[in-house]
């Protein structure tokens, strides 16, 4: 398994945002995470990166390297750095803090920029980029990270059709290379067309499996029934661990 999650609860101030989740991702699987706002999709990714510690349960990443594209990046876009240098930071696992960025690495950066349609942008400051171009830059850096498990949080939101299609092609290239990809998405039609597997999440797992068996009218209706608000008077959850039941 590329990823094995057992009885995972993640949350904020003791309130669960992801509740008792069991999930197995096969190596090389391409999975969409779908669900209403507040369903715990981004929280799940933060749990997988280790940014958020589990309140309960465990996460077993059976793979070496992980790359993560957050929904709201903390990139300081006024920082005076060129696109090429920014993208080259995706090579951190190769060069670290002190290693030399050599000719081969420069070729890799150029190749990654070409793959996202930004050839010729390497000298341009990141402050001069549009929102869509910034997302292309983020994908170029993800390409260089050469990760086995790639987590994308709403990677195609607010992009035009061409940019979204180009970046989707990058995702499919990763899929073809046997990398495991987990992407949070809201465009149900795009999920049906391009993502073989889907996790439907509404704080708890509604369904997980082949996309056409998950995205049924009944499942989507169940997902929408989830109450978004935390209950301040809720009791302590005493549900027994579901370990082994999945």
């Amino acid at each position: 398994m590329a990823l094995r999650i057992r009885d995972l609860t993640l949350g904020y101030d003791r309130h669960p945002a992801v509740h008792h989740l069991d999930l197995d991702l096969a190596p090389g699987s391409l999975t969409a995470v779908v669900g209403p706002n507040g369903a715990g999709k981004s929280t799940l990714l933060k749990g997988l990166t280790g940014e958020l510690a589990p309140l309960e349960g465990c996460i077993d990443r059976g793979v070496a390297r992980l790359a993560y594209l957050p929904q709201l990046s903390e990139v300081d876009r006024s920082f005076p750095i060129a696109v090429g240098a920014f993208v080259a930071m995706g090579l951190w696992h190769r060069v670290g803090a002190f290693g030399r960025v050599g000719g081969q690495d420069a070729a890799r950066v150029a190749e990654a920029l070409a793959a996202v349609g930004l050839t010729g942008f390497d000298k341009r400051p990141i402050s001069a980029l549009s929102g869509g171009q910034v997302q292309r830059v983020m994908f170029a850096r993800l390409l260089l990270q050469d990760a086995d498990l790639i987590l994308l949080d709403e990677p195609f939101t607010a992009l035009d059709i061409k940019t979204a299609a180009d970046l989707l092609a990058v995702v499919q290239r990763w899929h073809g290379q046997g990398r495991t990809v987990l992407a949070v998405l809201h465009d149900i039609e795009a999920v049906r067309r391009h993502f073989p597997e889907t996790l439907l999440l509404a704080r708890e797992k509604v369904a997980h499996g082949a996309t056409d068996t998950v995205l049924t009218a009944e499942n989507l209706f169940r997902a929408r029934q989830m109450s978004e608000a935390f209950d301040d008077t809720a009791n302590v959850c005493v549900r027994p661990a579901t370990r082994g039941a999945a």
């Binding site: 940014e51 300081d76 750095i81 930071m89 803090a97």
Partner: peptide
């Protein structure tokens, strides 16, 4: 430089 430009990324890779 990375801590200034993209601190979250630095924390994720090192």
């Amino acid at each position: 430089v990375l801590e200034c430009a993209d601190p979250r990324f630095l924390a994720s890779v090192s």
